[in-house]
Structure formats: structure tokens, C-alpha cells
């Protein structure tokens, strides 16, 4: 098996696919942390919301593409509501109260999802784009996974340009670097926070919508994904776009090859990687601030 090149190719693609899903989730979380210094524990719940709303849109309209487009917008709207009603009020209270509010939100959002969508796992029954199998050499491989990889890379490229080529990006970088100085230089930091928070929510919604055709959607999926996402954020380095990308790759590869090569340690591989990184490089692999 280990000498078979197709094993490495297929598992490599599996790693990449998982990594890109984790990236879509963790990038919003990490930039919110970098700017606003708090961790949105309800981020996973927004991912679940994206998947569930995406499911409803796809079932109602018959178009999964429409779900990819509208579900992130709907989740962004929910994020805006949360920001205005809860998070903004706690801006001056420091990071811990903000984290705790989002911890409480996990339970509220989860029950809201159960109330609206029930407890069964849901999957689109209509046509899914890229649902076929393609052959890489002689190996059959699900085309949809390649699509997820493409979405991840496109989002990374888009965010890279946004961050490095636009005024908003410059403001974000200034805010991450030193919020007070940025504010003194005339950057409307609160507005930047708000926009970044919305962008993070939208990406979580997109991740959910894109994951839904491959992995089904259910209330509670957000709690499950939260821990790996947090691990990616910490491993990659808080607040950094490339950190989130690299962290996702590290965890994607660890989980995939860990399960394939050392199945007995599959359950602890991720946590072992987390502890190792925290001990050897507590600031993460590519932190935004040194």
C-alpha cells in the first residue's frame, strides 16, 4: 500500500479537501480574533446554519448553486444581528465576556436549529453539481471534493487580494497590528471590526453550504466542527490569513494520514499536534503579530 503512488495521491487529495473546509471555517474565526481579540465560539453554529439554510434553499429551488450564493448571505445577516444585539454591547467589557456570550449562543443557536429543521440528518435529494466520479490516472475520485478544494483556494486568493490590495485590507492589517494607533490615524476601527465580523460569518455560512451536499446537514454539526476549527486557528497562529491556511493544511494532513497510517491513534492525532505546536511554538506557525 505504502509503495503505491495512487495511495499517496488519493490520500493527499483527501487531506487537501478536509484542509480547505477547515480553512473556510477558521479564516473568519482567526481574523475576528486578530482584530477584536475575542474568540467567537458560536462560529461552528453559523457553519451549521449555513448548511441547514443551504439545504432548505436547495430543496425549495432545486438549485444547489443558488444555495451556495444565498446561504452565506443569510448567515451574514444573522451575524449582523448577533453583532448589533450582543457583541457590540460588550466591546468595552473585554474578551472574556464576549467569549462567554458566544458560548451561550452555541446552545441557543443549536436549539433554534433543532426547532426549525428537526433532529434528523438532512441531505439534498436533487441534483448536485460535480456529483460524478472522475479518474485521476486509474483511480476514481469524487469530483465534488475537487470542487471543495477549488473553492478553498479561490477564497484564499480572494482574501489575499482583499487584504493586500484594498483600503479595507490595509485597515484590517493596521487594526490587527495595533488597533489604537490605527484609530489615531483615522481608521474607523469599529466599522472595520463590523465588516470583518460579517465577512467571517459569511465564510462560515459558505463553508456550511459547500459541505452540505457532501456531508449532509444536521443541527449539532456546528459543535462537532468547533474544536478542530479552534485547533487550526491556534496551530496556524492567531489573526493571520496564511496562518489559517497553513494550519488547515497541517491539521488536514495530520487527520487524514494519521487515520490511514496509524488508525489506533486517529482519535488523538489532532490534539497531539495541537499540544506539540503550543509547546514548541506557542504563538502558532505563522502568527499575525510577532
Amino acid at each position: 500500500m505504502l509503495t503505491d503512488p495512487s495511495f499517496w495521491l488519493v490520500q493527499g487529495l483527501n487531506s487537501l479537501q478536509l484542509a480547505m473546509l477547515l480553512f473556510l471555517l477558521s479564516v473568519g474565526l482567526t481574523v475576528i480574533f486578530g482584530l477584536m481579540n475575542f474568540v467567537n465560539l458560536a462560529h461552528g453554529s453559523l457553519y451549521a446554519l449555513g448548511a441547514l439554510i443551504g439545504y432548505s434553499i436547495a430543496e425549495a429551488s432545486g438549485s444547489v448553486f443558488l444555495a451556495f450564493l444565498l446561504a452565506p448571505l443569510a448567515v451574514t445577516a444573522v451575524g449582523a444581528l448577533l453583532y448589533i444585539t450582543l457583541i457590540e454591547r460588550l466591546r468595552s467589557a473585554g474578551p472574556l465576556p464576549q467569549v462567554l456570550v458566544t458560548f451561550g449562543l452555541i446552545f441557543v443557536l443549536m436549539d433554534a436549529q433543532r426547532y426549525l429543521w428537526g433532529s434528523d440528518a438532512l441531505g439534498v435529494t436533487g441534483d448536485v453539481p460535480f456529483s460524478g466520479t472522475i479518474h485521476i490516472g486509474s483511480e476514481p475520485y469524487p469530483a465534488y471534493r475537487l470542487f471543495i478544494i477549488a473553492v478553498g483556494i479561490a477564497v484564499f486568493a480572494g482574501l489575499y487580494l482583499l487584504l493586500n490590495r484594498t483600503r479595507l485590507g490595509a485597515e484590517v492589517r493596521a487594526g490587527v497590528d495595533d488597533a489604537e494607533t490605527a484609530a489615531a490615524l483615522g481608521v474607523n476601527v469599529e466599522r472595520t471590526f463590523f465588516l470583518v465580523f460579517l465577512l467571517g460569518c459569511g465564510l462560515a455560512g459558505l463553508a456550511g453550504a459547500v459541505a452540505m451536499p457532501a456531508f449532509s446537514a444536521e443541527a449539532g454539526m456546528g459543535v462537532e466542527i468547533l474544536v478542530p476549527t479552534l485547533v487550526v486557528v491556534v496551530v496556524g497562529g492567531l489573526g493571520s490569513l496564511s496562518g489559517a491556511f497553513v494550519g488547515s493544511l497541517v491539521i488536514g494532513v495530520t487527520l487524514t494520514f494519521g487515520t490511514a497510517l496509524f488508525p489506533d491513534f486517529a482519535g488523538i492525532a489532532m490534539y497531539a499536534a495541537l499540544v506539540a505546536v503550543l509547546l514548541l511554538r506557542p504563538q502558532g506557525l505563522l502568527p499575525a503579530r510577532s
Binding site: P97, G104, F107, V108, R114
Partner: peptide, 19 residues
């Protein structure tokens, strides 16, 4: 109620918001 988690979560949020 089966939605006791939401009530507990809401309670936590209220306590935090009370500062």
C-alpha cells in the same frame, strides 16, 4: 421542554450582559 439548552444558554448570556 426539550429546548432547555437554549434557556440555559440564554440565561448565561443575560448574566454576562448584566455586566
Amino acid at each position: 421542554t426539550d429546548y432547555w439548552g437554549a434557556i440555559m444558554g440564554g440565561f448565561l448570556i443575560l448574566v454576562v450582559l448584566s455586566r
